[in-house]
Design a protein around this nucleic acid. Structure first.
Length: 321
DNA sequence: AAATTAGGTTACGCGAC
DNA sequence: GTCGCCAAACCTAATTT
């Protein structure tokens, strides 16, 4: 039995008292529908509303858990776990044979009962497998998110994406880590806290190409509707890494705006575009950084910076700035 | 440092099977 | 589903300005 179930009846929940309690019927109306209110510590009669017993002990946990992993972490009860078994020894198996412990055939009534039990047991077991899978993935997502320094909301989104993938059986045949990484990458883009595929790959245990593949697959199947990253999103981070002030950043954003109007952004790597814009801006503002320096933080080559830079420069000069 | 050039690599979309 | 191919973007590396 999983300890979780015990805690489901706390907080605002009201549940009927167990038969082991002191009082089973209401002294006023003789009704037996007594209800324990664990929040207020009272036992009340559901029929007439009178309070039968006060100072009830709240048998629920003194902590609150909002997620599955949290409750796993905080709970101090439950069966001992072992990682050596695929289900950590928690679930029950029900044999398929319709015989009792002595090998005798069982009655029809028992047979249907057994069938129902098997069905539900299977449902519970597989659901649990999903939960375990999820826990692994979430741990991995958290680790990578920390390494990348992305804020909490991104992790939340990544978790949601992963859950969806799990629900729709998209993880089958793929590594948990691969899907987890892809979910995180997708979450970054969705939340507009862009990290390039390379950066994500650096903190992942999965190859870059697989992340890309899985990501596309997820985006497709889950209809995540991902649009290309706006290069402007990279400006704050890059500028800060290059020790450039706000003015340069604004100038770079203006350059990118123009480039966007001219339809220059399509198909190019956003980091390269951002880098080139920063290069132009740094020249404009007399705080020049070399192409090499910029190429470094943007994680593209100088050549790419150069190419984008030439394109964008033609624009900016073109309208006589 | 920046520009130019050449040649290699990669992921992507597409159609054929 | 995957195989083969193509075109575009990028990369590496060498050379010149």
């Amino acid at each position: 039995m999983n300890g979780e179930f015990i805690y489901r009846e706390t907080e605002t929940d009201t549940t009927t008292t167990s038969s082991g309690g002191h009082q089973e019927t209401c002294p006023e109306c003789e009704s037996d529908s007594l209800v324990a209110d664990n929040v207020h510590g009272e036992v009340v009669c559901d029929e007439c509303g009178c309070v039968v017993q006060t100072q009830q002990i709240d048998t629920g946990p003194e902590w609150s858990a909002y997620t599955h992993s949290e409750s796993q972490e905080k709970s101090r009860v439950g069966a001992p776990l072992t990682r050596t078994m695929h289900d950590r020894g928690l679930t029950t198996k029900i044999d398929w044979k319709n015989t009792d412990a002595h090998g005798k055939a069982v009655s029809d009534r028992k047979r249907t009962q057994l069938r129902r039990m098997r069905t539900w047991q299977e449902r519970i077991r597989t659901k649990d497998a999903g939960e375990r899978n999820l826990q692994l993935a979430l741990a991995e997502i958290n680790r990578m998110a920390s390494a990348l320094g992305v804020p909490r909301p991104v992790r939340e989104v990544a978790s949601v994406v992963y859950r969806q993938a799990l629900d729709r059986d998209l993880v089958q045949g793929r590594s948990i880590e691969g899907v987890a990484t892809s979910a995180l990458y997708a979450a970054c883009r969705k939340e507009n806290i862009p990290r390039s595929l390379d950066e994500v790959a650096d903190v992942s245990r999965v190859e870059r190409v697989e992340i890309g593949r899985t990501y596309r697959y997820l985006a497709d199947e889950l209809e995540l509707e991902m649009r290309p990253v706006d290069p402007r999103r990279y400006l704050p981070r890059f500028c800060s890494e290059l020790d450039l002030d706000e003015a340069v950043q604004q100038r770079a954003a203006a350059v990118l705006d123009e480039a966007a109007d001219a339809g220059l952004l399509s198909g190019k790597s956003p980091t390269g575009l951002a880098g080139a814009a920063i290069y132009i801006a740094s020249l404009d503002c007399n705080v020049k950084r070399t192409q090499k320096e910029i190429a470094n933080v943007a994680q593209v080559t100088e050549v790419t910076i150069r190419n984008r830079y030439q394109e964008q420069l033609a624009l900016v000069e073109g309208d006589g700035a």
